[in-house]
Write a protein that binds this DNA or RNA. Structure first.
Lengths: 230, 230
DNA sequence: CACTTTAGGTAGCTATAGCTACCGATTTTT
DNA sequence: AAAAATCGGTAGCTATAGCTACCTAAAGTG
């Protein structure tokens, strides 16, 4: 196996804590397929049969959701070492729920999921670690999505902002802190329009609840902020 | 191990396709703790240290999210054989992200997650199946959450409804079909108010796009429905 | 079978948040 | 350092969807 590929793989979360020599043995077991794709070609097409757990070895790829009406929305962009299709790998679904498009020339390694829960239990030392890594990846993903759902389900701008700020306050343990997201990104995360977000932040400032400048925030009245979270 | 408990466990998705005899051997390995809880007592408390993957053996339990301001929202109610805390088990988090409350007298079995990815690889025959089951559970959960996020992120009642109906149409492959959700549940799933949902459905009927009675729907104008999905 | 409960449709009112537009400040690019 | 792009706040207008209230139909319940 190419030394460059090994280097990317050991840095990938799916092979975390697996040594290059173990990796080499495992790849022999897993029999992955490696394909290359030209810029703007499809690595996977939404609705078509699942081709395996993908690991991007080089290039950049976009996960794209194509709606029934034909519009395309970029969900995320991934880089070398990152995975795609990890949610489908062990689910009963057998088709890609989204398309993956090469933004530049890409090399991709596909692992057949059956092989991962397959026979080589005893032979490969890193096998247990691989399973552990996949379990960590999947549960982290599920937790992230769960948090996302919680925020999206919140009705009301004031409530969303209040809960978000309270969470940040809890993380930082200080009245003054810097938000990890810019306004645009925050609006996106909370699934509201940026302007409406800014407006409400302004109102909260006028009411003496918070002060802010760009991404830095100071909580002036914690009680009122808590009230805003209902 | 009690025969009744074994009966519940083999029907649980986490021990799917594992025979009672295999299960017996595995439980010896896994060393689960079984606790009972009185009605209205806490099985797990949000924010406190994680106590393991929970399997409800008997009774009913509610997963409750307690907000910073003290309000409590029931997320789901689970019954015998169902799991909780499966997302945290393999994630780096070490605290309960929600509380679990016994709605009636409950017996709960806790599996220590370290044991699952632990030593008894060779000894237990059902071990591989257990891992497979957990992978299926987690990825199914992630996919469900992902789908949920997609719906919640959609702006506009008409769009949400249209996309939902198109998905149902795709599943049923017929112009007339029965929705799997009642109005209330559908409103909840799409995170809109029931009245606004009914109103928009009425509008779509007036425009000749659909017909409906209760949970049965007939698509009269697929092109217009597609247009509504943008 | 009468009674209650749940499910669902409709209407009117109103608060909310989205959108457009614009402007100043900051950061990045050349 | 000038130019361009990004970031963020503000204002006004408007469409949307939430809420209350009410009513009818269906489904459970005694």
């Amino acid at each position: 196996m190419d030394a460059n590929i090994v280097k990317i793989l050991v840095s990938s979360p799916i092979f975390h804590d697996i040594s290059p020599s173990q990796l080499d043995i495992m790849l022999d077991c897993l029999k992955p397929k490696i394909n290359t794709y030209n810029k703007n070609s499809y690595i996977a097409v939404q609705g078509e049969p699942y081709t395996g757990l993908g690991i991007l070895l080089s290039g950049e790829a976009a996960i794209i959701k194509e709606s029934a009406s034909g519009s395309r929305v970029i969900m995320t962009v991934i880089g070398p070492g990152e995975l795609f299709g990890e949610m489908i790998a062990f689910s009963p679904r057998k088709h890609w729920p989204a398309s993956v498009s090469a933004q530049s020339t890409c090399a991709v390694m596909f692992l057949p999921p059956e092989k991962i829960i397959g026979e080589c239990t005893q032979a490969c030392g890193g096998y247990k670690q691989l399973i552990k890594n996949i379990l960590v990846l999947l549960s982290t993903k599920a937790l992230m999505l769960n948090q996302r759902v919680e925020y999206l389900a919140i009705k009301g701008m004031r409530e969303k902002i209040s809960i978000y700020l309270l969470e940040q306050y809890k993380i930082n343990q200080k009245n003054t802190f810097v938000l990890p997201l810019k306004r645009n990104e925050l609006a996106d995360f909370l699934s509201v329009s940026r302007t409406a977000l800014s407006r409400e932040l302004g109102r909260m400032r006028d009411e003496g609840i918070i002060e802010f400048y760009r991404t830095s925030v100071k909580i002036n009245n914690l009680a009122l902020l808590r009230r805003g979270a209902e």
